[in-house]
Design a binder for these strands. Structure first.
Lengths: 152, 152
DNA sequence: GTATATGCAAAGGGTTTGCACGGTT
DNA sequence: AACCGTGCAAACCCTTTGCATATAC
């Protein structure tokens, strides 16, 4: 069930309340993280007729009214999450493709410093760092290779 | 002219020396930052016959042997740069689309802290932060709107 | 009733791949 | 001479768009 006042937020933005919009919002909240495609699948579990383009249009709209955000986790599709989640930054492992989250406060001091020196105001909800997760940076982790395709 | 030992680095990786590879490397170094497409244009200024797929294949290869890196600056195409550039992180303005760079040392302490608490080893060369640049976060900057398309 | 949302299908970027030819070793 | 790299064209994934129909208001 979407956060309490979602309908109001849509109306304030001049948008209508539709079943699809409710479904997209629910899917995002249920998934935690999800690409447009994954969100479609989630939505279709209960409503098979919904179209991918509707997902895209509504994610864009929901982001505009402030109910979801997205960040780019690397090559592929972006990831959407609902705004009432704890604000977090993404850690994307380049070896095993794992994505983990850490509370954004760990970056706060750094970003404040950055703002003072450069004037750049970072959108903390968009941060994704590439690197190697704990298991994959361990001296010789067999896990690393297994989790992904062994080639490459 | 590519960094001194590039030919060696290719050979060590089991790759051959070709004119195209030299051209791609030169283009990346000349451009500083560039998407595959921009790199193609740069290459074609001197060699019109080179194909986009060759650019992709060679960027991937050059990255594998450690001569270039790339980072994702948002929605579109990734950006490549040569590794002997100063290591820097990208600041991408979501309003005016400007991309600026700051020396990566500003993030070092933060990333070290992150490593200690989570075990995640960040690839510092891949960092791109989304946000608002100095001019666009100024109270009411007219610049911001002008630099981009006014719609949206 | 009117304007907005939706579904569908086609088009659009960016990237990858299969294949025959040409170049490097 | 053998194999790798290239150009070309087709295929692919993700996203956007045009249009007629359906729906919220």
């Amino acid at each position: 069930m979407p956060s309490a006042h979602w309908e109001q937020q849509l109306r304030l933005g001049g948008y209508r309340i539709t079943p699809q919009r409710r479904l997209v919002l629910e899917a995002v909240e249920r998934l935690g993280h999800g690409s447009p495609d994954e969100i479609l699948s989630e939505v279709q579990r209960t409503s098979a007729g919904v179209n991918l383009s509707t997902i895209y249009r509504n994610l864009e709209m929901l982001e505009e009214v402030g109910l979801v955000t997205h960040s780019h986790l690397g090559h592929g599709a972006p990831t959407y999450h609902s705004v009432d989640d704890h604000v977090h930054i993404h850690l994307v492992c380049g070896i095993c493709d794992d994505v983990s989250s850490v509370d954004a406060v760990v970056a706060q001091e750094f970003l404040e410093q950055l703002r003072l020196t450069t004037g750049f105001v970072t959108d903390i909800t968009h941060i994704a760092l590439q690197g190697r997760c704990a298991s994959c940076s361990a001296p010789d982790s067999a896990v690393a290779v297994d989790k992904k395709h062994a080639d490459h």
